[in-house]
Amino acid sequence: MDKLEQLKNVWQKQEDCKITFSKDEIYIMMRQKSSSVVKWILIISILEFLLPNLFLLFTDHGSSADFYNKYSIATAMKFYFLVHFIIIIIFIYTFYKNYKNISAVSNVKELMQDIIKTRKTVKYYIYYNIAMAAIIGLHIFYKVFNSESFLETLPSNTNQITIWVVALLIFVFVLFIFWGIYRIIYGFFLKKLNKNYNELERTEYC
């Protein structure tokens, strides 16, 4: 009999574990707050859903309306806002449905899939927000840079292309920072889960 078989026999003969908890201790434990990955994902996701829209709350609506009118983009902005609102509702509904599906009673692989799916919804939401910010940002840039009132303020020898390049660089830099922060949070919570999921998947294709 090999060593492993021998140890298996010892294992199966083992009596009660060295540590045992009394009923009272179990009562206290079940009332504690969970610190599971899923709970943290929920908290972070809600923040992620709220954050992009908090910017809207703190903008001065009067002056931004004047700004939109000045560059004749008020109708376009209303359209963007409506689309944005509908899409957020769809995202939140999908997220909620995915979150409700997560159950510790599923098998190990299903549970991991459900958590990853929930996380993916938020990931797409972030991507969507970045894309939307890019579209609206470029639209505004375009309108402003082509307006006479802006062109008049520039020194006569300014190259239009230089302005565009600088504006785009700043824009890309801001996006990059957002993306970086996002990756750090995402990686922090799902590193272990992704590793285990890949391990479970690996031999399936071998």
């Binding site: 599971s36 190990v108 549970l111």
Partner: peptide
């Protein structure tokens, strides 16, 4: 449930 917690939920 125990295995799921150890593998996927516990940090």
């Amino acid at each position: 449930v125990s295995l799921n917690t150890a593998i996927s939920l516990y940090r």
